[in-house]
Each structure stands twice: as C-alpha cells, then as structure tokens.
Amino acid sequence: MIALDCKRVQEKLSSFLDQELTLAEQKELEQHLNICPDCERECEKLQAVRDMLEEFGQAGVSLEESLPLEQIEQKARVDNRIRTVVLSLVVISFLGLLWGVFSYFSHYEPIDPDSFTVVAEITTPFQEQSESGPQATFLPFLELTSGGW
C-alpha cells in the first residue's frame, strides 16, 4: 500500500515543485512528504535539479544586437543564392559522375574476355564454313549437274 503510494507520489513530484497540481493534490502530496523520508529526499533532489537548471538558464548568453529586418532579408537572399549555386554544382557533378559510370560500363562490355570467346566460338566455324562452304557445296552440285547433263 505504502510502496504504491510512494510511486504515485514520486511521479507527481515535478508538477508539485512547479505548483502545477490542483490544490487538493498539492495538499495530499505535502502530507505524504511530511511522513515519508524516502519521498522527501527524492523531492529535495528534484528541487536541487530544478534550481540548478533555473540558474543555468539565467546564466547570460551574450546577446548580439538584433539585426534590422532588411539586413536579415538581404543576408538570407545571399545565403539562398550560395545555396542554389552549391546545390546546382552538386547536381551537375552527380549527373556527370552518373554519365561517366554509365559510359564506362557501356564501353567495357565488348572487351569482356568471356563474351569474346563466345563470339569467337560462334564466328570461327561460321567463317571457315563461309570460306570453304560455297566451294564444298557448290562445286559438287556443279559436278553433279554438269555430270548429269
């Protein structure tokens, strides 16, 4: 019973410290903290964290004088122009690279040794045939026909 209560209380500690609870809840928690040293210690630690953060937030950040609007607009315009130039350069070089890679691979294909031997295997017998073929087939035919006549 007490353990469950402590868990519920500890979940609400931050809101309790920020006074972001309803009055009834605020009172309920106060009563529990008075009788529970564990929760009280946890509450003190969270209070220290909260104080620490508050002090950190108040530590000064050097403030530059606010730029007049026109100056800001002008600066943004220049920034935009630079961004456009850089972006187009990136796009152009990427396309160039893509083109380079593409043309490299499309030229590379015929030099591939595997495809070369395949081509050689297909073409050599055909070429031999075409050189001797007509004679081998045509002449016997001539002989045959001429012989026949």
Binding site: E20, L46, V49
Partner: peptide, 27 residues
C-alpha cells in the same frame, strides 16, 4: 508534465553519476 518529469529524473541521474550522490544535497 510527464516529459519534464522524466527529463529531470534523467538529468538528476547523470549529475549524480558524474558528481556523486551527495552533490545535489549540497546545491
């Protein structure tokens, strides 16, 4: 509410890991 509470608990844990568990009591 819940994000802030979880964040503070995390910060508390990190501070205690770095500076010891008594550090916050002396703040």
């Amino acid at each position: 509410r819940s994000r802030l509470h979880r964040a503070r608990k995390k910060i508390k844990q990190s501070v205690e890991e770095k500076y010891g568990s008594d550090f916050l009591a002396t703040w």
